[in-house]
Amino acid sequence: MKNNKGYHIIILFCLCFLAVANVNAQSDWQAPAEENEKLSPFLFDDDMVLEGRIAYENSCTSCHGTPGQDDFTPMSPPPGDPAAEQFQAQSDGSMFYKIKMGRGTMPKFEDAFADDELWNIVAYIRSFNEDYKQELPNMEGVVIPEYAMSLSFDENVDKLVVKVFAEELPQPEVSVSAYVMGTFGKHLLGKAQTNELGIAYVDVDPTLPGDEEGKVNVMVKATKEFARAKVEKHMVMAKPTERHSAIEGRHIWSTDRMAPIWLKITFFVSVFGVWFALLFIVFGLRNIKKAREEA
């Protein structure tokens, strides 16, 4: 009995230690100071929260559960509930950095989401905190240019050419990221910066399959400080590929609906032919029997 008590105390102690260790592991994770102070260039509105919710449900729910429900996956260290105080006590910049860079079992979402999409997720997480007031950067005297983009493909060097303008003036040093839109997600083609002519070149793999004409859906984002622009285009850029149905042609598992007409005719002619021959013989025998009876 005494021994049992001892075991219980040891187990309890171990559990407490694990819990403390886990909490420590989580609180240990500090974003670098400059990232910590980073502020969202966007005002968190309902649209951002909605976009963030979609992204969260697709990419975060499996570990973090639904915010406010405390139904996160039991892992070590625990992923935690984003609506919890421990999460909400962080700065926006810290959340942004941690989602973007990941650590250990927390995946790195840098390649999956662009910066504005990451801010959407932060906006969604903040929507669970009633006391939250968004801190905005000082925008006085800052003019945000409105970018326009033109996309073309240089087939001689297999490069996507992105030209970035603002009021018809080329924009240098703009960060450009180009994606190919797939059925379930966007594939990063590459990132580049515009040169002094406002042009950025992104490598395109010539083996990338497109449709019959070689067209793919391309999405390009351009960002520089608070200026942002996004453009989507269905353009010729990939290898023309003919798409075949998985059931075309004949297979051992084909159904009779897919059988060629000559096979159907041969089949039915043979079957009816055999029946006809059998009946012909039976009738002939019957006639012989009749003739014999009559004779």
């Binding site: 797939g182 059925t183 379930f184 997600g185 594939h187 399959p209 590929t241 798409r243």
Partner: peptide, 20 residues
Amino acid sequence: YFGDQNEDLVTNGTTKKTVR
């Protein structure tokens, strides 16, 4: 990972990263 072989792209269900 799940995707369309015709596009040669598959997307990871957890991270949503799309790769060839």
